[in-house]
Design a protein around this nucleic acid. Structure first.
Lengths: 177, 177
DNA sequence: ATCCCCATGTAAATTGTTACATGATTCG
DNA sequence: CGAATCATGTAACAATTTACATGGGGAT
């Protein structure tokens, strides 16, 4: 059975992979820095999450010797890299997070070839277009019967269209077709 | 002490207020309809949430007589309306949801005067502009040191800018300055 | 010396997910 | 009649929030 990661766990893996070797606190700081607050930076969520990932063998933790504070160096294992890669590439419509594309894009470097990266962006684009079509259909019904819900839901459409624009810009910037 | 509502509870109150009297199942259906999945539509979250709200005195549940299925008519109490109004107007930067503005806008009708409604939109606009400024500052640092994180975070900026555009359109549509 | 940030966590309570259980009604 | 949907929930589990506890190290 394949391991199913939560978004927080995936974010943890991703940040560790970017900064390894690093401490739990470094991950926390990285999460806290982000203006969009994609992941929770509370100790009560991160420490248990990392303990889980160590238990699952996705992270290796090595105590620094002669460190009075008991800091540990965290690194991804091979298994951890695989799990992270799987999370990135298994991007689907059922994702519960506000922006599953953006959270994954942070770790795009884990995909080695241009082909894989372009594939990710393409899949993201298709998903977004599907969502746009669905939202448009929904808005059509909605308009007729509930004015305010129409305007509220229109916000979702604007967000999706912005995502599409952003994806194009990212693809161009990264030289991906 | 004032009651602090979760987003799900607020959504429940809002939908009930729009459709009252209605059943729990009607709320569930309303949540399930939305293409943006702003609120969870699982029975395991909604039934307990409504039980909580009844216990807190924000909802009144009345059994329909001679209804074999045991349906209940739910209505907001005065206290429930107040709590919902407070949730809508207490829009702040610390909101954890992806789009605290959009979720609240659904229930804008609860604000009676144009002045209040315009106030809400104005506050939303200010919050968004602040977030945009913060994100721009963040991106400036980010660009220098982590290419991919820069492009990922740029997505957040696009979302915020889309929100601003949407807010303008909503204000115009509702004839609010 | 004292205060604040670094850095580790844990405990209790709450919340949400997944899956199940039950029975009524409608539709083909 | 059988399947899908309506409509109520609950139980077990997993995850998160909030708050606390502990101590090192650096700056004023």
């Amino acid at each position: 059975m394949t391991i199913k990661l939560t978004d927080l766990e995936s974010g943890v893996l991703g940040v560790i992979r970017q900064q390894q070797p690093c401490s739990t606190y470094a991950v926390r700081r990285a999460f806290a820095r982000s203006p969009t607050r994609e992941w929770s930076d509370s100790a009560g969520s991160i420490y248990p999450a990392i303990a889980r990932l160590v238990r699952l063998g996705l992270i290796r933790a090595r105590a620094r010797k002669a460190d009075a504070r008991g800091r540990r160096d965290l690194c991804l294992t091979k298994k951890g890299e695989d799990a992270l890669r799987r999370w990135i590439t298994c991007l689907d419509a059922a994702s519960s997070t506000p922006d599953p594309v953006r959270t994954r894009l942070h770790f795009l470097e884990l995909l080695e070839t241009s082909r894989e990266r372009a594939g990710f962006l393409k899949r993201a684009e298709v998903l977004t277009r599907v969502a746009i079509a669905e939202t448009r259909a929904f808005l059509k019904e909605e308009r007729a019967h509930a004015e305010i819900d129409y305007w509220a839901s229109l916000g979702g459409l604007y967000q999706l269209e912005a995502r599409l624009k952003w994806l194009k810009r990212v693809a161009a910037a990264l030289n991906l077709p």
